[in-house]
Simulated scan of single mutants.
Amino acid sequence: MSRTSNRADGDIIRDFLSVANLLKESQLAQLYAYLVHEDEATVQDVIEDLELSQGTAYRNVNRLVDAGVVEVTHDEQPRRYAAREIDLTVTTAAGDREYTITPVLIDAVGRAETNDDIDTYIDRHGVAGLATTLTYAVARERGNVTHRMVAEDLDISPFAAEMILQALRPVVHEHYEIKENGAGIGELDIDDGDAADDA
């Protein structure tokens, strides 16, 4: 059974910790992104669409409700749930970078559940690194940067830059108004030296 959150509005620390859990667990991020996309859903919808067991679906929905990032929108059976908007700006520990946690970033983190390139990138560069790269992915799809420019700015190989930009492409196109004219991996000038650089 779902429980409503008892957290007080405006509790910044609790809000941050709730969002931090989303960013640590790709399955929770995936569920949150699903609810953002669907506007509202029942647990049965979650079970069917995300192919989760009944126990996992109920447990994860309850965790998100308790964290205050999902709310019950219809309390009668079957209960319906919706994601709350998240827009939280964070500065890295070194103070050298600032990034904003939005449903788009949470969606990208959630895709690590099924996309090895995103999962590997998060392992190597963290969520802050993914947030920065997501900004570049939007710019790339708009034709403002190339994968080589991204590689140079992020200090990664052009091959690694192309792999993560391609992995983030569906996220970008789902959340932003962008014409379908970005470069496909087969159209890029990736040479064997790029792949060797990444190894």
Rank of each mutant, 00 (worst) to 15 (best):
M1P: 03
T4Q: 06
R7H: 14
R7D: 06
D9T: 14
D9P: 13
G10Y: 01
I12Y: 13
I12N: 10
I12E: 15
D15P: 02
D15T: 15
N21F: 05
E25C: 06
S26I: 03
Q30M: 15
A33D: 11
Y34S: 02
V36E: 04
H37W: 12
D39G: 10
Q44L: 11
I47N: 00
L52G: 00
S53M: 05
Q54F: 10
R59F: 09
N62Y: 00
L64F: 02
G68I: 03
V70M: 03
V72D: 01
T73A: 06
P78T: 09
P78N: 06
Y81N: 01
A82T: 08
I86S: 06
T89W: 12
T91Y: 05
T92I: 07
A93Y: 07
A93W: 15
R97P: 01
R97D: 12
E98F: 02
T102M: 05
I106H: 00
D107H: 14
A108D: 05
A108P: 04
A108Y: 02
V109Q: 01
N115S: 13
I118S: 06
T120P: 07
H125D: 08
G126H: 07
A128R: 03
A131Q: 04
A131Y: 02
L134C: 00
T135V: 13
T135M: 05
T135P: 04
T135L: 11
R140E: 15
E141M: 07
N144K: 11
V145I: 12
H147Q: 09
A151H: 02
L154R: 12
L154V: 10
D155Y: 07
S157N: 04
I164E: 00
L165W: 03
Q166N: 14
A167C: 06
P170F: 09
V171G: 02
I178A: 08
I178T: 09
E180D: 15
A183Q: 10
A183R: 13
G186I: 10
L188R: 15
I190P: 01
D191Y: 09
D192I: 09
D194G: 03
A199R: 14
A199T: 11
